[in-house]
Design a protein around this nucleic acid. Structure first.
Length: 283
DNA sequence: ACCCACCCCTGGGCGC
DNA sequence: TGCGCCCAGGGGTGGG
């Protein structure tokens, strides 16, 4: 569920909560949480012990902490991951996966993840940009994101518009919620063919995606339940400002037509039947 | 090079 | 009350 705004809220919390601090010990409670670290959990912990966190960075939905060793502690929250900065005497969470203690004796960092789709790993020399996420495009809130290149690559695809928005190598940070919201704002059905969009329409869609991401970030992100929270355990407020996602049967905020839900790639898409007519041959 | 199906996982909600 | 099914879904991987 965490998409760009939710991950950025977590990054800001890490910047305030752990940058500049030295890690004294790391305990892995669930091996699956250290998934892409080939050398295993004990090596993972050893590479972090004694290291000072120098930066908290993000690209799309990936986060990483730069370390004074030049390595990067990289992670993805998956569906249900949380990075919490909490007092060390706080009772342990049911789904605690990894625990980071600091030499200053202050609040500790906990990776909590119910569904275990998330994971952490240490990449040697990855502090600037981990190689494992170099294939990701920049996200629409990145000052170096190239709008023209996005428009060009989108229109060169032979795919559906929603598929394209979720393609993290084209534009990163957008998931199912914000894709549906951007499409609603652009009055486009997600099954529209990418190559049929005009340059102007593609540019407009990108603008809506950027708007919805930054508006959500300003509200602390979208939370439907306790599964997405900031490092302080606080839920975001943007769910009440969604126009499409999760609103099947409710009236469209533009035209009043009841919104529909369509099965799509083993999940759901929400849209307005009137503002976002289905194309003859959906992609 | 690109596209897509498959698989990983848990718990809340709901029907019977 | 309890069981079993469905749903939430991002991304890596491998096949076409």
């Amino acid at each position: 569920m965490p998409e760009l705004p939710e991950v950025e809220v977590v990054r800001l919390g890490l910047e305030r909560g752990v940058v500049g601090r030295e890690i004294s010990s790391v305990t892995v409670h669930h091996d699956r949480a250290v998934r892409r670290h080939l050398a295993g959990p004990s090596d993972f912990a050893a590479r972090l012990r004694g290291r000072t966190v120098t930066a908290a960075r993000r690209r799309g939905k990936y986060l990483w902490l730069g370390l004074d060793s030049g390595d990067a502690l990289t992670g993805h929250l998956g569906m249900s991951g949380q990075l919490l900065v909490v007092p060390e005497d706080k009772p342990v969470e049911t789904h605690l996966r990894v625990r980071f203690v600091f030499t200053d004796g202050g609040r500790e960092l906990r990776f909590v993840d119910q569904r275990t789709f998330g994971g952490l790993f240490v990449e040697e020399g990855g502090a600037e940009l981990p190689a494992a996420i170099r294939h990701l495009a920049r996200d629409p809130l990145d000052p170096l994101f190239e709008d023209d290149r996005f428009v060009q690559r989108l229109r060169a695809k032979r795919s559906g518009v929603k598929r394209a928005l979720l393609d993290q190598t084209l534009v990163s940070g957008i998931g199912n919620i914000y894709a549906d919201e951007a499409l609603w704002r652009a009055r486009l059905h997600g099954g529209r063919a990418t190559e049929d969009l005009t340059r102007a329409k593609a540019r407009e869609l990108l603008g809506h995606a950027r708007d919805v991401l930054s508006e959500s970030l300003a509200q602390g992100g979208t939370s439907f339940d306790a599964l997405y929270v900031s490092t302080e355990g606080v839920s975001g407020l943007f769910a009440r400002e969604l126009h499409a996602y999760g609103r099947e049967g409710e009236p469209c905020d533009r035209c009043g037509t009841p919104l529909r839900r369509e099965p799509w790639m083993n999940r759901s898409s929400y849209s307005c039947p009137r503002c976002q007519p289905r194309p003859r041959h959906p992609r």
